[in-house]
């Protein structure tokens, strides 16, 4: 049975019975689609963020750094760091203390960078929105390629021995052992509930706008509007999308609904994925915050390696999926 059937029933009832819109008209299907999709995505967000936050309460950053400073396998370490990045709640606010804390605990620079790349780019909000708007296959592709980029980019930068481009004071920081808090199940549920409510509160408006625009454009703008500029045949579309993404500072929640509209109008999937990744992983404001701990040369290297990874992923998916 389709678990979303009750939502479909609700959307149908609202559209055709309450609003009295005729069933076979474009307006009817647009409104029906809008109600169904926005309710579905917001419910999914609430449930999945709750579950992920609950799991996350078992992996505080303090535990993560201890774990990563002990594991000693080169690429595996980067991969684990990227995976943990998915689970970590991340706002650019915490990038600097996380970075210093990792380095101070003896986590290798490359592994720390893998974490730093994956945390803002791959997370449960992106997962839900991609799943809700494009289906689970695209969501899985995004997560897998995000983790792969973070793993490889961090590994490459680890090989480059860039430790000298980290601000010296970082190596002088000595931390005390913070007492580990004992959390009860109630604490964890409270934390997960609060986090889920917070995110849904700050994200629902983007979902409504994104789904609304998508529904509208679906019926009323030509489908090939962007094909010429951003379709799979324009070679420069991918790097251009990445360049445009850098100064834009947003999170997955703000970006994905807009991207869904671009895709509906002919942007190639790989180009769209590259754009999303650039907006979340390569952001100018975050670089400015990171300047506290990384010298400009390291930030430039970071941006270039990650940028190349994203561009490569964009081309790869344009090749595989086309449009």
């Amino acid at each position: 049975m389709d678990i979303f059937a009750p939502i479909q029933w609700l959307a149908d009832w609202l559209t055709y019975t309450v609003f009295h819109i005729a069933k076979t008209t474009p307006l009817g299907s647009t409104v029906d689609f809008f109600i169904y999709d926005s309710i579905k995505i917001i419910l999914l967000l609430a449930v999945i963020i709750f579950v992920v936050s609950y799991i996350r309460s078992f992996f505080p950053a303090e535990k993560t750094k201890k774990f990563l400073s002990k594991a000693k396998f080169p690429v595996v370490n980067n991969f684990l760091a990227a995976l943990i990045g998915i689970l970590t709640p991340f706002c650019s606010c915490s990038a600097v203390p996380l970075f210093i804390g990792f380095v101070e605990a003896g986590v290798p620079l490359g592994v720390t960078l893998s974490f730093l790349i994956s945390a803002p780019m791959v997370n449960e909000v992106a997962l839900v929105l991609l799943w809700g708007l494009f289906g689970w296959k695209i969501a899985v592709i995004y997560i897998v390629s995000g983790v792969t980029i973070a793993t490889i980019a961090g590994w490459v930068m680890g090989k480059l021995k860039l430790e000298k481009w980290v601000e010296e004071f970082v190596y002088k920081v000595k931390s005390v052992q913070a007492d580990e808090k004992k959390l009860t199940i109630k604490d964890r549920v409270d934390y997960a509930k609060r986090y889920a409510i917070d995110i849904v509160k700050s994200v629902w408006i983007y979902v409504i706008i994104g789904v609304g625009l998508g529904a509208l454009m679906h019926g009323y703008a030509p489908n090939d509007l962007l094909v010429k500029y951003a379709g799979p045949n324009n070679f420069f579309a991918v790097p251009l999308a990445v360049l445009i993404g850098i100064p834009l500072y947003s999170n997955a929640a703000g970006t994905i609904p807009i991207v869904s509209v671009l895709i509906a109008k002919g942007m190639a999937m790989g180009t769209a994925l590259a754009f999303m990744m650039a907006v979340t992983a390569l952001s100018l404001p975050e670089f400015i915050i990171l300047k506290k701990v990384l010298k400009p040369k390291l930030i430039a290297t970071y941006a270039s390696v990650v940028g190349v990874g994203i561009i490569f992923t964009g081309y790869l998916f344009n090749l595989i999926i086309g449009h």
Partner: peptide, 16 residues
Amino acid sequence: SDDVARIVELGLMHSP
């Protein structure tokens, strides 16, 4: 204070 090193010295890794 924007002394992030102090955050880490306290054993914490988040901000603010």
